[in-house]
């Protein structure tokens, strides 16, 4: 009897789980359109924050052990403060996080993460080239960001924010990227096999 009722219960749970999962994986359509845009950059902001958690910079990337990890945006800030929000009073590896919004990147800007916005399209190649030797995690949104030498490039897949990783670029920038992150990337280029 017990076993019977138990099986019943389990079935119910399974059903509920499926429902919930479905619900979760499919966000409600009503607020979709609006929140999509906002949500996208919120997600990307969150991703940016998280990227720091899975990337290792060389020591010379920082002034000292306690200096902050700086996120820089170049060009128009598409985040509209979302990035600031996402890193606000957080730290990664005991380094506080800060955000700088630059018009133009310099190597002396002291950025460890450089987000090149879509609007910088024209210049992105320059910047990229410029920053590629420096230990800066370059993150972009353009389609062929990573092919162009960016380390991580966001992409939208089925309305979900995904990203691609250029391992070679990472290597060039003397950045180590965690396997976990790699595993999550949609595409990884620059390693010997690629994904």
């Amino acid at each position: 009897m017990k076993a019977g009722s138990r099986r019943g219960l389990n079935t119910l749970r399974a059903l509920l789980t499926c429902v919930l999962l479905t619900a979760i994986s499919n966000p409600l359509p009503t607020a979709r359109a609006e929140s999509t845009a906002t949500t996208e950059y919120a997600v990307k902001a969150a991703f940016l924050f998280h990227f720091a958690q899975f990337v290792e910079w060389p020591p010379e990337a920082f002034k000292d052990a306690g200096s902050p990890l700086t996120y820089c945006t170049v060009g128009d800030d598409p985040f509209h403060g979302a990035l600031d929000q996402s890193v606000y009073s957080k730290s990664v590896g005991n380094r506080p996080l800060q955000v700088q919004h630059l018009k133009q990147w310099q190597p002396t800007s002291g950025c460890q993460v450089l987000f090149i916005a879509e609007s910088e399209n024209q210049r992105r190649g320059v910047e990229l080239a410029g920053a590629s030797q420096y230990p800066v995690l370059t993150v972009g949104e353009s389609q062929y960001f990573v092919q162009q030498g960016g380390v991580i490039g966001f992409c939208l897949v089925e309305n979900k924010v995904r990203f691609n990783i250029n391992l070679e670029a990472a290597g060039k920038a003397r950045l180590k990227i965690s396997a976990k992150l790699l595993a999550l990337a949609k595409t990884v280029i620059g390693n010997s096999g690629g994904k």
Binding site: H50, F163, L181
Partner: peptide, 10 residues
């Protein structure tokens, strides 16, 4: 192992 997944909602 799943931190990244969680972080990146994968």
């Amino acid at each position: 192992n799943t931190t990244a997944s969680l972080a990146f909602n994968d």
